[in-house]
């Protein structure tokens, strides 16, 4: 994983884990690596990974079992909410960007439709 040093590293790791949960790369209930192993893998400080797990636990996206480690939530509801939030962030950024280019709602929808072939071709 490459990091952008302008953004707190723990936020970048959180984002990556959330993406992997939403895309299904990380499964509900799956055990996460220990802070130590994960930090070695990413080449960062283990305190940073500990912070990642703390923040994700506050958001109830992971949970810890004492002595066993950190696990991805098993709640479909939380994962569904996460998927919605992340998709909404993407679409908000898209709409803002297109508005700045002068696109109206209709133009945007038309644009997406004409790009549909391209989207499908890349699936």
């Amino acid at each position: 994983m490459e990091f952008n040093n302008n953004i707190p590293i723990y936020l970048q790791v959180i984002e990556k884990i959330k993406q992997d949960i939403v895309s299904g790369k990380l499964k509900p209930g799956e055990k996460m690596p220990s802070s130590r192993d994960y930090s070695n893998e990413l080449g960062i400080n283990f305190n940073t990974v500990a912070r990642v797990y703390r923040e994700l636990e506050n958001e109830e996206i992971v949970f810890t079992k004492r002595g066993l480690g950190t696990f991805i939530t098993e709640s479909d509801q939380i994962i569904e909410k996460l998927r919605y939030t992340m998709a909404k962030n993407q679409i908000t950024a898209f709409i803002d960007g297109m508005k700045q280019l002068g696109y109206t709602k209709e133009d945007m929808i038309k644009f997406i439709e004409t790009e549909n072939n391209y989207l499908e071709g890349n699936e």
Binding site: N5, N6, I7, P8, I9, Y10, L11, T48, R51
Partner: peptide
């Protein structure tokens, strides 16, 4: 380091 990045929107190097 993380708080500095967040506050100033810059890398530590920046």
């Amino acid at each position: 380091a993380e708080e500095l990045r967040q506050e100033r929107q810059l890398s530590v190097e920046g």
